[in-house]
Design a protein around this nucleic acid. Sequence first.
DNA 1: ACTACCCGCGAAACCGCTTTCACGAAGTCC
DNA 2: GGACTTCGTGAAAGCGGTTTCGCGGGTAGT
Lengths: 334, 334
Amino acid sequence: MGPAPRPTYSVIAKAAGVSEATVSRVLNGDESVHPDRAKRVHEAVDNLGYRKNRVASALASGRSGLIAVVIDDDVSVFSDPFWGTVTSGVSRILSENGLHTVLMVSPVGSVDGGVANYLKSGEVDGAIFFVLHSDALVNNLKKSGLPMVIAGTPHSSLDIPFVDTDNFGGAYAATKHLINQSCKKIAIITGDIGTTAAKQRLDGYLQAFRETGGVPAKGLICEGNYSLQSGMDHARQLLETHPDVDGIFACNDLMAAGAVTVLQDLGRVVPDDVKVVGFDDAVIAQTTRPALTTIRQDVVALGEAAGSLMIAQLNGEDVKPIITTTELIIRASA
Amino acid sequence: MGPAPRPTYSVIAKAAGVSEATVSRVLNGDESVHPDRAKRVHEAVDNLGYRKNRVASALASGRSGLIAVVIDDDVSVFSDPFWGTVTSGVSRILSENGLHTVLMVSPVGSVDGGVANYLKSGEVDGAIFFVLHSDALVNNLKKSGLPMVIAGTPHSSLDIPFVDTDNFGGAYAATKHLINQSCKKIAIITGDIGTTAAKQRLDGYLQAFRETGGVPAKGLICEGNYSLQSGMDHARQLLETHPDVDGIFACNDLMAAGAVTVLQDLGRVVPDDVKVVGFDDAVIAQTTRPALTTIRQDVVALGEAAGSLMIAQLNGEDVKPIITTTELIIRASA
DNA sequence: ACTACCCGCGAAACCGCTTTCACGAAGTCC
DNA sequence: GGACTTCGTGAAAGCGGTTTCGCGGGTAGT
């Protein structure tokens, strides 16, 4: 009734008439075993329904086959579909390479919290970090020699491989689009400015703006935090301080949606009076009325890039940062 | 430069002047060690910065401290924030109990795919399943004796503990609310009817309907699939076949939002002409105009319930299914 | 024909921790 | 006071793989 006793190497070895060492070689793809004996081993494995005990294997070899995905839950961001999506991308790539994903959702603030402890405990072969506000932990872990990948651009220039969306380019394109639609007074509602992504998007906006020869009026730069509420608040405020604003670039779709509803509640017609561009191309971009013009980022690809960077690193290959491209999706709001 | 060599029991034992067995006892909270010696061990541990190798520990004890969270990705549902949220709930509870979450996002259709293999490999102490369309894998795994918890109601009556939202009650409340608002012709747009959650919500609707003494006209029951598109399609169709429909219960907010936009595009005023109620209380419920009246389910609580059920089970306690409550959130759409 | 290699393979050590077992000391019972 | 428990502890045997080492036989070089 209990768990059926699983066969071990010794059983397989006996059945195949070889030594345990040979079983190990065969099962690990060592080419140097004679094909006949390899075949006997494989047969024995199949017949007995053998499955390798990964824990024992991990202990002996020092490789666990586990990769940690660490998401900083300081801001309980995990309810954002972004994380789920990117994580599933990572997970898929890793499992295609025989690795498994250990998910850790926990505040990463401290350098010696539970997460840090776990990562140092040698149970994982590598870690992928979604860094938001601080590089401290990553930086600290670097000493340990643990292979790491950062999703998102690190704040300081650690020489750790990272993947990120082309935030700058996307924001530039968004702003440019507004300019091309002959908007004269273009505001930006930024994301949490403590994150590099938000900074980069702001930079993209500034760059596009600068190319027009002007400098954005101070009040046109609103520091949001990616939440629906902040989109609404800033839109309202914007309308007070700059009633003639005719373009808004919100740094994610959620804020854009918030801005649109406020604009409409206050009698503005989108896009006729004010044009709005979002960022992400989240589902909400399609359900908002008018549907949001936005910058699509390929989130799954981002996750996959993170996964493959990790794999390359484990294989000892040279790795370079990967920046995934964005795409302007034109809908009705701008 | 490489990873600093980590101390082992033998080092600690020597430093503390005790045997390795005693070190193990102390580190595993065995009460029977003399306090003085225990203290010496703890000091040695602190001084040397010792950290237990969990892999070795897992091999020797047969307990890995890992719990798999398996999400069926057949329908690439992971982009739905629901999954991220519930997973983070699970992860939090587990880590509070010294366990870690291994995330597996993969089609669970087959009984002997990679996931099944992994779960049988003994590397995890338990598994939490998000079952959607089939119980096959879970059912198969039951024989192995692996502790399991199902999130969502299983199709067949396996005697495996599960947690679920009160889908029936929520749907009942939603429909009842429409009835109380004196809607006469109330339609439902169901979720993917291959899932138990969708069935239960339909049942709740039917029950409320039945209590009015009537039976819903056939055309009022529309089989959707939780997607925005299906909400739009069914709303459009509904307006054709039943122009006098005055209430719609959509089984999630996404479909509700789709329905609302279509209704408006076709000249209906929500809620004056048609009232709409959604389910989930997702972010989109707040951004849709009018904001959606909906059924809130506490997704984090659901995840935490799943986690605690697993822990109880590992502790050998008796476990009963947990049904988390829902709440009617009244906004503008009904 | 003789030494020098190379190749395939088994014996055995080892990875770091857990747990059983047995032993000596100390306490209990009549 | 002798026999019986109880208690704290260390020695040692695993857990189930991986990997080093060296051996015997076949091939190559001279």
